[in-house]
């Protein structure tokens, strides 16, 4: 079974600064790592590969240094990795990112299952997985927490819904996003990590992917971030004074006034 796992490289520590001129996020000098929710997708992909004697290819859209995360993914057990990198991709929103991923997967050709994490810890959109499914024109299921049966033609799995769980059968090829309940990602081996450091990472740019630069990046993205700012903590908080009895009385009074209760 040919499995494709899409990952994102994110800041290892979420420490944010804003470039006052461009409004762009500056996270320079901060260590970068595989987006933690993507590790569940990677683990599940590697388990499927081990079970089916298949192959796992990892994809990411990012700058040249994102190849470190792809190498790490190989250290975990992925067979192959492709970095989708082009100055034209910079500033891509979720729509444009999924378009680039879809083009890459089409270029790879044969695939059975694409796995994505639930969302990234920086952008927190959770949109690329479902958008990729639609862009590829294949079935899609979100928030999968268990794979029950994996056949040549279809996959049976449990997904988390707002009310509980749903058992769903999906024809292959398809795309799924997974949640952390699906597995416990393995710890990679030292030999695997060391060998992966020497792995050659394929890089595809816009031209190689057959992408018109105008359709991706800042220019081609439907959405645009017009402003980034730190949240204003409404520090009009009121400290209720007195003994517990009177504190509780004041609170109930205020909650009534604001119709919170």
């Amino acid at each position: 079974m040919n499995v494709i796992v899409c990952i994102k490289q994110v800041p290892a520590k979420i420490k944010i600064e804003i470039d006052p001129k461009t409004s762009a996020l500056a996270s320079g000098g901060v260590d970068r790592a595989i987006n933690p929710p993507d590790l569940y997708a990677l683990e599940e992909g590697i388990r499927i590969k081990e079970k089916t004697k298949g192959k796992v290819t990892v994809l990411t859209v990012g700058p040249a240094k994102a190849d470190e995360s792809l190498k790490e993914a190989i250290g975990y057990g992925a067979d192959d990795a492709v970095l989708l990198s082009d100055p034209a991709f910079e500033g891509s929103d979720t729509w444009a990112t999924s378009l680039v991923l879809a083009k890459a997967i089409r270029k790879i050709g044969q695939f059975d299952l694409v796995l994505c994490g639930k969302q990234s810890i920086d952008g927190e959109t959770g949109q690329v997985g479902p958008m990729l499914g639609e862009a590829l024109g294949v079935p899609f299921v979100s928030l999968v927490n268990r794979i029950d049966e994996l056949g040549q033609e279809s996959i049976k799995m449990m997904r988390m819904s707002d009310e509980g769980h749903q058992l769903i059968e999906m024809t292959l090829p398809g795309v799924i996003t997974v949640v952390k309940e699906i597995n416990v990602p393995r710890i990679p081996s030292l030999r695997g990590l060391m060998a992966a450091k020497k792995a050659a990472i394929t890089v595809w740019n816009a031209r190689e992917l057959g992408i018109d630069p105008a359709t991706v990046g800042m220019a081609g993205s439907p959405t645009r971030v017009s402003r980034v700012f730190f949240p204003q903590r409404a520090s009009q908080g009121e400290m209720l004074q007195g003994d517990p009895e009177s504190q509780v009385e004041q609170l109930v009074e205020r909650l009534r006034q604001t119709r919170a209760i």
């Binding site: 639930k118 959770g126 479902p130 958008m131 993205s221 439907p222």
Partner: peptide, 23 residues
């Protein structure tokens, strides 16, 4: 947002050739 925005809404957006601003 909720499970609609984990599947239906973004897929609809792509089919309509537009984006989503989630959450």
């Amino acid at each position: 947002s909720g499970s609609l925005s984990s599947s239906v809404i973004p897929r609809m957006a792509v089919a309509l050739d537009t984006g989503v601003s989630p959450n």
